[in-house]
């Protein structure tokens, strides 16, 4: 379970978000500058909230009152940034092994190969990330994040850098994987088609949650023009 109650002021944005995720996928939607990326950075621990508390499976990651702020490297969160951020100076397997420094050298190799296998990209193991397609890079990045057995997943616009065909294919795969893993997953997106990935949708505007529910619930009673646009049936 991921419990989030954070407040942070950056420039003109005053972010204040309360959110609780069980073993479910939640889509965070909202217009540009609404604070979606800021929320991810607060959770990841690369930006500190001014106030609030973050807990993951009863482990407190941040508590302003108690002065707890667990370092980013110890938060056990799997993160998939928008462009997947594969390390260009390492090959595919090197990317996966990067996160496995806790394991013994021989286990590291085997474990990394297993995860590449599970995501169907074991054949790319010796390739350089530069030569991979967008879809392949996403799978490698997922393998890299999941190989560390994270307690929750954070995905930032997981399909934004893919072409429409790859997007449809990978969306279906990701949906099946998320169902299989049953991790709390927070997916930031402004593509309504990504709603199929999530059990519910949270709409953030100007740093606040303005509405949440399933896509049908939102469509029935849109609280803002953004929600109305986001949930509109494709023509």
């Amino acid at each position: 379970m991921l419990e989030i109650a954070v407040a942070r002021k950056i420039g003109s944005l005053e972010l204040r978000i309360d959110l609780m995720l069980n073993r479910e996928s939640v889509l965070v939607a909202g217009p540009n500058g609404a604070g979606k990326s800021t929320l991810l950075r607060l959770l990841l621990g690369v930006l500190s909230p001014d106030a609030g508390r973050i807990a993951l499976d009863k482990r407190v990651l941040f508590d302003a009152e108690k002065g707890i702020d667990v370092a980013a490297e110890d938060r056990e969160l799997g993160y998939l940034p928008q462009d997947y951020a594969l390390f260009p100076h390492l090959d595919v397997i090197g990317n996966v092994k990067f996160g496995l420094s806790r394991l013994r050298r021989t286990d590291r190799q085997r474990h990394a190969e297993e995860w590449l296998e599970r995501l169907g990209v074991a054949h790319l193991s010796r390739r350089s990330p530069g030569g991979l397609s967008g879809g392949e890079r996403q799978r490698v990045a997922l393998a890299r994040a999941l190989a560390r057995s994270p307690r929750a997943l954070l995905l930032d616009e997981p399909f934004a850098s893919l072409d429409p065909v790859a997007r449809r294919e990978l969306r279906a795969s990701l949906r099946a994987w998320l169902f299989e893993w049953r991790l709390p997953a927070l997916i930031v997106s402004h593509d309504p088609a990504d709603a199929v990935l999530a059990d519910r949708i949270i709409v953030v505007e100007r740093g606040r949650v303005v509405q949440q529910g399933t896509i049908d619930e939102l469509r029935g009673a849109a609280a803002s023009s953004f929600v109305a646009g986001f949930t509109a049936e494709p023509a």
Binding site: R41, L44, G45, V46, A71, A72, E73, D74, R75, L77, G78, Y79, P81, Q82, D83, A85, F87, F98, G99, S101, R102, R144, A145, R148
Partner: peptide, 15 residues
């Protein structure tokens, strides 16, 4: 340097 690479490195357990 791409900021995302540095953030990802942290989330992968690197100090």
């Amino acid at each position: 340097l791409d900021e995302n690479l540095l953030v990802v490195s942290r989330t992968l357990g690197a100090s």
